[in-house]
Write a protein that binds this DNA or RNA. Structure first.
Lengths: 228, 228
DNA sequence: GGCACCCACATTTTCGAAAATCCTACCCTC
DNA sequence: GAGGGTAGGATTTTCGAAAATGTGGGTGCC
């Protein structure tokens, strides 16, 4: 769930390393994961690696087959659509609650998060990885902040998990340089509606935002990006 | 998540044993979990026990503190209300989708699940544990069946996790013999509305059903059941 | 030729002990 | 007496090897 500051135990490191390897595509969907390889990758013994895999499995990034080990969870259009549909439901409701309960401190954090994000270059394939990761971080922060005042830790946790899970798919679509979308504008609209306490419109804008991302990735899938 | 058929590895056994111990109250909320004790309880070495705890932590039954081990997740009114609120949202939508997509085969399974449950004695404190567990099982099956046609595996999985998590609380309320509720009737109303494809009413009835359970447990909490 | 069985190999899972970390209580200094 | 540092013991975390299990191929039988 977290990624940074997750380094007090070796198992935490292993989790971070493998998680990153899966998101980055170093470990491909469906690929079998051998302990020997992962031990070499993480530079540690089998125990923490196994612990990391158990955690990743609980979060849907890997799948486990008793006595036959683990493999990277496959990607599919069906799962993408499922994730997006569920996110629209959960984050939509979380945003509505946030707008209902959020105070001016929340408004401030929201403005700040959006500002920082908008000042960074838009995600593009030709940018250095470090900058892309930076944008990803700010983008995640913005969406986190949106729902942070909903007063439901469980809802927040579920949204967080789905966000990271969806991220595997979103990364595919980044390699398409132009999608004739103005993502910055979409974010702005969500924020403005939220600040104006216009819950219905804010939620609608958020759902639209996710649906567009889903559509972009779906197009990509049909061009065969999933099979590689 | 599962409990039965989870026995192909020792770690799976450990998970089942500890999970059961937490739900039954043998391991109390907030209690520190020492490996030595759990190894004795499960009859195995540290590795599978640790794996079980990692999984339980991912599902919210235990909490982990780096280098300080694990403890049973505490119960609180706030969490109960959060769980119930989220369940109403998730299962409500899942039921709506199920009603939209379910075919006659689904209707059949729903009727069957309800029938089996209604023929069993109502859960009561004075009944033998085996019978109570049987009723619990059928009750869970009924609710599972309700949403089983929603076509969203993720939604189903989340509902399942919340159901089990809420179960820890629900078990507290069972010890109160009479709550002036007709649970059988509540279930029947949900089913009838669902079969009549009356989504709005079915969802409303389901949410009411959960809210009443929550209210019952909440009353219990205020009488100090949480502190023991 | 097809099918079942069995053996050797590859891999995961589990064990028992070593290493690392945390907590407690004590001592020393100020 | 208060604060800080430090050994000792308890506990978790990690390691490396042993045990258990799945896999693939070869052999013999029908």
């Amino acid at each position: 769930m977290k990624d940074r500051a997750e380094a007090r135990t070796l198992a935490g490191d292993a989790y971070a390393v493998i998680h990153r390897a899966i998101r980055s595509g170093l470990l491909k969907p469906g690929q079998r994961l051998r302990f020997a390889d992962l031990q070499a990758l993480c530079g540690m013994s089998v125990s923490p690696v196994r612990e990391a895999l158990v955690r990743l499995t609980a979060e849907g990034f890997t799948v486990s087959d008793d006595h036959r080990g683990f493999s990277v969870a496959p990607l599919s259009i069906a799962e993408l659509l499922d994730i997006v549909g569920t996110r629209k439901l959960l984050e939509g409701e979380a945003l509505r609650l946030s707008i209902e309960h959020g105070d001016s401190e929340w408004e401030g954090r929201l403005l700040a998060a959006h500002h920082v994000m908008s000042r960074l270059p838009r995600e593009r394939d030709d940018l250095p990885t470090a900058i892309r990761e930076d944008w990803d971080q700010r983008h995640a922060d913005f969406h986190r902040t949106l729902i942070s005042a909903c007063r439901s830790p469980i809802l927040i946790e579920m949204c967080e998990k789905l966000f990271v899970r969806a991220d595997r798919y979103r990364r595919l679509s980044v390699s398409v340089p132009n999608q004739s979308r103005d993502v910055v504008c979409e974010h702005e609209r969500i924020m403005t509606c939220a600040l104006n306490r216009n819950a219905d419109e804010a939620v609608a804008a958020l759902k639209e935002h996710y649906q567009r991302t889903a559509d972009a990735v779906e197009r990509l899938f049909q061009d065969g990006a999933a099979t590689e």
